[in-house]
Simulated scan of single mutants.
Amino acid sequence: MWRRPVPCSSSKPTPRDATITPTTSAAGTPSDPSGSDAGRVLLAYFSRPGENYDYGKRRDLKVGNTEVLAGMIADRITCDVHRIEAAAPYSDSYDDTVARNVPEQ
Score class of each variant (00 low, 15 high):
L69P: 02
G56N: 03
D80E: 15
P89S: 10
A70E: 07
V41T: 06
R58F: 02
C8W: 08
L42E: 14
D95S: 10
P5H: 07
A87T: 15
P5M: 05
R100W: 10
P13Y: 04
S25F: 01
L42W: 09
D92V: 03
G56D: 04
P89V: 04
S31T: 10
M72R: 10
A70K: 07
D60K: 04
W2H: 10
R76Q: 11
S31Y: 06
C8Y: 11
S31G: 10
E104W: 04
S9F: 08
P103D: 11
G39Y: 01
R48N: 02
P13N: 08
A86M: 11
T23M: 15
H82L: 02
P103E: 10
P5V: 03
T14I: 15
A88M: 09
D32V: 00
E67F: 02
E104N: 08
Y55G: 05
D60Q: 09
R4Q: 08
Y94W: 15
V81D: 04
S25L: 01
W2V: 01
T29V: 14
T97D: 13
M1I: 11
A27W: 10
T78V: 07
L61I: 00
D96E: 15
R48L: 03
P5D: 06
G35N: 09
L61D: 11
E67L: 04
A74G: 05
S36V: 01
M72S: 09
G64L: 07
Y53T: 00
R76W: 00
M1H: 12
A88F: 07
G64N: 10
P13L: 07
G50F: 08
S10T: 11
S34M: 01
Y90C: 10
S31Q: 10
C8P: 07
G39W: 00
D17H: 14
R76T: 04
G28K: 03
M1P: 11
N52C: 08
P7F: 03
A26S: 15
Y55E: 13
E67I: 03
T78W: 07
F46T: 09
A88V: 12
D80C: 08
I84C: 15
G28N: 06
R76P: 01
D60C: 03
K57V: 13
P30N: 08
R59M: 01
S93A: 02
Y55N: 13
R83K: 14
S25Y: 01
L42Y: 06
A70R: 06
P103K: 11
K62F: 06
P103T: 12
D32P: 01
